[in-house]
């Protein structure tokens, strides 16, 4: 009868335990990696997305007006949840960006029309980033991402420190002087959870704005993303916006 020494028994037991722990950690890490890499709308249904077709925008700013009405956004400049910018790109490479009262006031005719290479409108709003800087910097958990993918502000919990306004690379947030909190596009959460579309999408006369469920391949936004070449703003920031643009010029930031 062979006898195992105590030392050998302990060593083998420790080795087996280590191997078991390593295997379970590796399995867990694999799951985490898959979790991070796969699109979240594979896991959560619905998962809201948004698209803007810049080849259709006429800059009428009905969306800006509707957003202010629907969401009680102050009728003063500097407070916008969505706004329209007009880019004028000159032949000499100059770029002019204008947004008179967010686009609510008429855009004047650009000066020296002969020197214009191209000009176009760009509606902007919260990008509802998958990996949003504004949520990361919030010290109290007042900025958050809902289970269906929208980025929101908890007005009753926000302490008004303005970190998120600084952190947003898209300038989508503003400080609401009435509530003394950060404020932003809610993607009309009160509408989309009732089966309605956001107010800006409803009133858009040209079909520039497209909204839908990314987890449903038949939704307008899924179809649009599938059938068109789309880009996001500032991809180098790694924010993974769920707002995509078609026909985005390289000068747009």
């Amino acid at each position: 009868m062979s006898r195992i020494s105590r030392r050998r028994l302990l060593r083998n037991a420790a080795g087996a335990a280590l191997g078991w722990v390593a295997a379970s950690v590796a399995r867990r890490a694999g799951a985490v990696e898959r979790f991070v890499r796969e699109s979240p709308w594979i896991r959560a249904k619905p998962y809201w997305g948004y698209a803007i077709d810049l080849t259709k925008c006429i800059g009428c700013a009905r969306c800006v007006d509707a957003c202010k009405t629907e969401n009680d956004v102050m009728r003063r400049p500097f407070y916008f949840r969505t706004w329209i910018e007009r880019y004028v790109i000159r032949r000499n490479g100059g770029v002019e960006v204008e947004s008179p009262n967010g686009g609510l006031d008429a855009f004047g005719r650009p000066a020296e029309p002969k020197t214009i290479l191209k000009t176009f409108f760009v509606p902007k709003m919260c990008n509802h980033c998958e990996n949003s800087p504004c949520i990361q910097v919030c010290p109290v958990g007042a900025s958050y991402k809902t289970v269906d993918g929208t980025v929101q502000v908890d007005r009753r919990y926000c302490i008004g420190c303005r970190y998120c306004i600084q952190a947003c690379p898209y300038g989508s947030r503003y400080f609401n002087p009435v509530t003394r909190t950060a404020d932003k596009c809610t993607l009309c959460y009160h509408r989309i959870t009732k089966g309605l579309r956001p107010a800006c999408v409803e009133v858009c006369p040209t079909g520039t704005r497209i909204f839908g469920d990314l987890s449903d391949p038949g939704s307008p936004v899924s179809r649009f993303i599938r059938e068109n070449a789309v880009q996001v703003l500032r991809p180098e920031m790694g924010t993974r916006p769920k707002l995509v643009y078609k026909g985005l010029d390289r000068e747009v930031r």
Binding site: G141, R155, H190
Partner: peptide, 27 residues
Amino acid sequence: SFGKLGHYRAAAVDDLKRLPVRYAGQA
């Protein structure tokens, strides 16, 4: 309700849902 759905107040989502609808829309 803090922490029920994530690092935020889950009741805040219900606050959002209660906001009034002004545009009747396509429907």
